Computed example of a mutant assay.
Amino acid sequence: MTDRPPSSARIPLLLNAFPPPDVSAAVLERRLVSHLGKLRSAHGVTGAEEVHCDPAGAIDTCEHNRWRADPETPVAFGQNDWFKIRRRVRRLREARKAANPFARLKAEERERLEALRDGVRLASVPNEHRADELAAELHADFPWLAPATEALWHALRRSAREGLPGVRMRPLLLDGPPGIGKSVWARRLAGLLGTPATVIEASNENASFGIVGSQRAWGGSQPGQVIEDMLRNRVGNPVVVIDEVEKAGSARSTKGHAFDLCASLLPLLEPATATRWTCPFYEQPFDMSWIMWVLTANKAELLPEPLLSRCPPIRLRNPTVPELVAFVQREGGRRELSDAAVSALVAVLEHPSLRNHPLNVRTVIRMLERAADLDNRPLLH
C-alpha cells in the first residue's frame, strides 16, 4: 500500500493577522489631497490664502502653484494645508507601525513568516476505514509495538469520526528497551500519513533550544527546529519525535540561564496552552495544538511527574526472533534486496548462537543497510 497523499485541509498556524502592504508617504499624501480637494469642491471652495507648491516633489501634479482634485474644478492648497496633510501622513504611518505585530522583526524574518499567510495544510484520514488500514499496516511492520499502534489507531478513528480537518493525536510516550524501533515506528507513521517528521535527540546539550528556540534579545538567538520545519514544510500536524527524553539535560543561554527540556515541552503538550503558544524568537502566537508528539524513553520512571501526567507511558517490549525475521523480509522487499541477501540475514537472525542474545531493530537496520550497499556495489574488473 502506498503512502497517503497530503490532505487539502488548511488552518492558520500564525495567529496574528498579517497587516496590509505598507503604503508610502507619497501615496498617502495623494489620497489626502484628493479627499480634501473633493470636500472643498463640494462646498465651492477653490482657493487658499497662501498657495504653496510642494518643494519635495511628493505631489506629481503641481502646475502654476495649483493641484486639481478634479480636472474641471481647480482647487488651490496653501502652506498650512500642506503642513496639516504631512502631519496627518506622519501620524498615520506611526499608527500603522505601532499596530503592526511584526514591526520588531527583521525584513528576512517577516518574509519567512509570509509563507504562512495562506495557512498550512493538515494531514488527515477521510474515514474510519482508512484509519483501520493505516493502523493495520503499521502493526504488520511492528507487531511488538502493538500498544503504541493501538493508541494511534484510536486517535485516527476519533479524528475521522469527529470530522476533524486533520489527524489529532494526544502526545505519546513510548517506554521500552533501547533499539526496539520506537523512533523508526514514528517515522513510518509520518510516511503513512504523508506528513513530515522532525526528530530531536534529547541528549543533545541544546535540545531545549532546538524545540522552542531562544529569545531574540539573546546572543546567537534563533527559532526552534520545530517551528522552522513547519515554516519550511507548511504542515500544521507533523510528527515530532523527542528521542530518549529522559536523558535531557539543562540547556544554558549565553547569560547562564538554565532551561530544562521537559519544562519547555509542557506548554506544547497541553492543548489549552498549545493552541496559542508564543515563540520566544519570533514573539508571535502560533497554533501548535495539531502537532503529533512522540516521546521515546528507555526508563520513563526518570521523567518528572508533570510530564508523565500529560503523557502516560506506553510500555513496550523487545521483538522476538520471528518478528525480526518478518521485519527483515518486509524491509528487504522495500529496499529491493536480492533474495540471497535477505536469506543470509534471516540465517544470521536464526543462528543458535543468538538464541539467548537476540539482535534488536537498530542492529537489524544497520545489517539491512550494509546488505543494500553490498548488493549495489559496482563490479570490479
Rank of each mutant, 00 (worst) to 15 (best):
S8Y: 05
A9N: 15
P12I: 03
L13N: 03
L15F: 12
P19Q: 06
R30F: 02
T46I: 11
G47T: 14
A48Y: 04
V51E: 14
C53D: 08
T61Y: 00
H64D: 15
F83C: 05
R86D: 10
E94T: 12
K106C: 00
E109Y: 12
E109P: 12
L113W: 11
L116P: 10
R117N: 07
V125T: 09
N127K: 01
A131Y: 08
L134T: 11
E137F: 00
E137D: 15
H139I: 04
L145V: 05
A146P: 01
P147N: 09
E150M: 08
S159R: 08
A160W: 11
G163E: 09
P177I: 02
G179R: 10
S183K: 02
V184R: 15
G191L: 14
T198R: 05
E201Q: 14
E205K: 06
I211D: 06
S214F: 04
G224I: 03
Q225R: 14
E228D: 15
N233A: 14
R234F: 09
N237P: 09
V241P: 01
E244R: 02
A251D: 15
S253W: 01
L266Y: 09
E270A: 06
E270K: 10
P271G: 08
R276L: 04
M292H: 09
T296A: 11
L303Q: 08
P304C: 11
C311G: 05
P312T: 10
L316W: 00
V321A: 10
V325H: 10
R330W: 00
R335L: 15
P352A: 06
L354E: 13
R362T: 03
R366F: 03
M367A: 12
E369V: 04
R370M: 12
L374I: 12
H381C: 06
H381G: 13
